[in-house]
Design a binder for these strands. Structure first.
Lengths: 212, 212, 212, 212
DNA sequence: TATGAATGAGCCTTCATTCAT
DNA sequence: AATGAATGAAGGCTCATTCAT
């Protein structure tokens, strides 16, 4: 019960810390954990290596912090998504679209997740914030599906967790693997048009599937 | 204009080469490209580093070779999947199941893809074999959907490429991110039961979506 | 000719200075000069690094100051040892015992000396206080031996400086090397009983040797 | 019972290893463990850092190896000291002289011991060779004293271990602290004449003490 | 073909020291 | 007088790669 509260940082220190985190996010997303260079992070951040270690202790702790913040950022945006007042189909479409857009807009987050999974979630498991990483969207989804099933708009045999994973996967795979897919298909999946096409598709897949 | 055909390897040399590739696949999947250790690969393979360099020239060339072989292996199995004689729904279910199972059975392949995408497919783009990496399943899919649409079993407005990506994504994301998902959901997604549940779900999603 | 007399310190500043010196003594004795950490000294002292540098200028100056004070402390205690009124044998025993006990009670002093000798006395030679480090015991010893020789109790062919070094060495080596000796002999030389046994021995050695 | 015997080194590797050990001994003796620089050791040895780590794994392991070898070297010379055939007083004088001369001739050994004691013998305690570090001289000493006591030449109440420590200390302190002593006394203890004077003294002390 | 030994660049981390308030 | 933040140099260690046999 006596969590050593770290003394509040001065504004200057907080700014330095933030700059390091931003630089680290970019570098980690670009090169992974093992491939990232501490020198590069320090240089990009405008700080120096010593500050990096003063704030985070090690490259690995920095990685974990960056990862936690990436999750926190997504959860924060998710909390802004309010679908309670929408009819089920619209609500569902909105959730699906939100996820695709967020994923497409944040390929760094995708890159972090991929890397963390390469490490078998070893860092995430050490995080004290894991519970906070549970997505509010899972509950939204559960609620929307219940409303849809009751009204007869949706089928009633759906496991919300499976659907949540599906919803994420439809966007994540497309973003995460856009480079290999683009190479093999010989067409650029990174354009706005490609995103819109994907968006139409994934909404149709989910709503099509949910028809009773 | 006169591509030096590499002289055929002796049986012994070929075996050494193969052992190195196997060891490299394991090490790369476990630790990524930057995180993999040449020493470890040499040790695992029972060969020594000099052999590794004699055969592959550099760690990066070895990576590319491993990646190409992983694609080739999947394509080879895909070519065995014959759905031409099956009714559309069954054919589709079979394709979906094949992909999920292959993905679940080969997490190393997933890990390789993730890493290669971290590198923005830089190595793949240097490969001379890219065309061979185009999946025969895309054409199978196109064919099955045409048959389904004609018979009225499937809707007719589906882009096969999008569906292909969806089909892959439904399994890939679940496998690729099983460690973070397991951590956050507090349940192990690596069990046989979890795989079966996922399999039922993804087949239902695709077939449900394809209903006219 | 106008040595800047340092302005007298405020009571508070003097206290800070003292705490830093105490912390430095402990840290230096524990880890040597190169192994000691300025951060650690600052933390232990309850002050901060800036104060440390304000008072002492550098780690090396701090080392020298600590060393000078350790010598001064021993010399101060030595000056309290009054043997002029004792018969020669008793006087000698007292000097021998004093040295052993002081050494055993101040292993930090021993550690400092060892370290300083590793540095070939480079810091001590820069000290302005070297003359003050000449032990009053050398003169006591000379006096006692003269009295003993005259009375016929002691042999007359003893070089007081050699005997002084011997007297110190009998205790110093035992204290300085108690860890390696304990390890090799498999018994703890740090106990009170071990000290008493050593005390009996060294007194016997010196008095035995001094018999005419 | 199945100690992984390290594969025998090639002559070249053994030579490299030896050069590293020699360079390390010099550097450690000069600067202590914390003060020693791995770069310097590598440079002095004519090898490079990588080889140092290939052979010894870490600076600390290298330290331990150097320490073990220094002990082994002294024990090897000690084993050559044969006093069984000499009359007790001569035998004892020889042991005392041997120790002083060895110590004076090997100030690096003294420096190593001092450093290791700063570390509270932490490395030595991890050594598998501790038993081999027990000095054969302790037994020689016991034997000589028994002979001397029986013949009436020596007193009979002497603890051999105490005398052993005394014998070592008489030389060790003088060598270990020669820099601070020279500074304080204002005369160089490193000369040949100084050594001879010390030698006469320590032999007299021991033999004088042992008189019945 | 195969191997043990060697290399130099570079990586993560730490240190004594100084700046700005 | 005192402090938190910052710095650059350097330290121990590791890596992919190559040499010599």
């Amino acid at each position: 019960m006596e969590d050593q509260l770290p003394r509040p940082l001065s504004a200057r220190a907080a700014a330095t810390r933030q700059r390091i985190l931003d630089a680290a996010l970019a570098e980690f997303a670009l090169n992974g954990l093992a491939g990232a260079r501490v020198d590069e992070i320090a240089a990009r951040s405008g700080a120096n290596k010593r500050m990096l270690y003063a704030h985070f202790g090690s490259k690995e702790e920095l990685w974990l912090t960056v990862l936690e913040r990436a999750y926190a950022a997504k959860r924060a945006e998710e909390r802004e998504v309010d679908v309670d007042h929408l009819p089920p189909a619209e609500a569902m479409a909105r959730l699906v679209r939100f996820n695709l857009r967020y994923t497409a807009a944040h390929p760094e987050f995708v890159a972090l997740l991929n890397q963390e999974n390469i490490h078998r979630a070893a860092y995430l498991q050490r995080s004290a914030e894991v519970p906070a990483m549970y997505s509010p969207l899972v509950d939204s989804l559960r609620d929307v599906m219940a409303r849809g099933a009751e009204s007869g708009e949706f089928r009633g045999d759906v496991d919300p967790m499976q659907l949540y994973v599906t919803m994420l996967g439809l966007g994540h795979f497309w973003v995460a693997n856009r480079h290999t897919l683009s190479t093999i298909f010989g067409q650029d999946l990174g354009t706005g048009a490609a995103l819109e096409a994907r968006e139409r598709h994934v909404v149709e897949v989910v709503l099509g599937y949910l028809r009773p």
